[in-house]
Amino acid sequence: MKKTGALLAAAALILSLGACQKDAVSNLSTEESRIYITDHDSTVNFSSYKTYSISDSVAVIDGNQSTKQLDEADAAYITAVKKYMDGMGYTQVTKNDNPDLGVDVSHIIKTSTGLISYPDYWGYYDYYYDPYYWGYGGYDYYVPYAYDVYTVREGALSIDLLDLKNAASTNKIKLVWTGVIRGEGIFNTSTADSQVKALFDQSPYLKTND
């Protein structure tokens, strides 16, 4: 009977030691949970662009509703984007000074399906961003590349570079670069700079000649 008890204890110990499983997601810190995705039009030579203008607020996309806002975190993102655009050699101008690139920053809460799907996001782009804002009312946006379809039930932040330099000659506003941040704790003033830095660091082809 003693031996049976000892064997039972040994078996229980073996199972308790060996049957556990490490959960991948719960072992991530907030920083580690985030991913930074970039995509661009490979036919574009970014050194052909010299100037940019950035929208003065962030588009908040919630379902099929879109509003503009500028809270502390939004301002931190816009400041960071300016910093790293300048770092890439671009010069900021007003939108009335014929910028080569337009920069939009979007805070996506959810799309109309309740999930974030980037093809959906681009499908509604002219709804979120009236081309009139950039001085090209009536033009269509054109996306020459496509991300893998990611769908999640949480927020994301997207930064888009638009080719305004060639809009008039092509009758469309082409997206030439997109950076997307996803994961936990995105909308945070203190980490906005480092998150934007990650997007620009992995896109060295954005560098233009001063």
Partner: peptide, 29 residues
């Protein structure tokens, strides 16, 4: 038998296709 394997790699940039990159902490479970 049963064995659980887990590995978390430090943040790195991965090329997903010709034009798309992702910076991420990669975990295999």
């Amino acid at each position: 038998g049963f064995q659980d394997y887990y590995q978390k790699y430090p943040r790195a940039v991965y090329q997903l296709d010709k034009t798309q990159s992702v910076s991420a902490v990669l975990t295999n479970s």
